[in-house]
Amino acid sequence: MKKLGLFLLPLLLFLLVSVFLLQGLFSDPTARQSSLLNRPVPEFSLADVMDDSVRYGPEVFAGEVTLLNVWGTWCVTCAYELPFLTGLREQGVRIVGLYYEQDLDPDFGAKSVSQIRQDIHKTLGQWGNPYAFNIFDQQRSLSLDLGVSGAPETFLIDAEGKIRLHHIGDVNERVWQEKFLPVYEQVSDNVAALKESGE
């Protein structure tokens, strides 16, 4: 009996460690829960990237389910996901861009606003334009408040302006089907139900 235990115990330990490490192989180290989940979008007042006189606040998310996509023309993966996002827009998904510029930072060398606008025109002309409009987060203050770590990142915001999903990395067919669609359908039902009860 004792000998059996001496044999089984290391085997059991080995199996436990193996399962634990095997899990690690398939886990995504960048995936983590946003601490802003189910909370409203933080306060902000920022200009449109194309027009300084147009300003946006959190109210732009009221009444409509929106994808908020953090991007920049300097970001290669962002350009890569533009065609897919444009496809979503054609299906009726509202997408708002949160644009930030790496090159505007003095640490990375300066780039003028008109140069940025030109680059945006070029990029969107080439890969498709999924955006209803783009919020210009020049100081990256809203990005910091949203817990953005880089680009691309995408938030799903419900009709009440609450954050329901925070995805780090590009949105593609697989991510959309597995991660976004279930939540999107759920909050869209909400909107439909709200409209019905309002009538």
């Binding site: 990256r140 953005v148 770590s149």
Partner: peptide, 23 residues
Amino acid sequence: CPKCQNQNIADSNALVSQDMKRK
């Protein structure tokens, strides 16, 4: 640093680390 796998914001040169340091 939220962007890097294991670096503090003092060591990291990522944009987000610089923003955080400034903040």
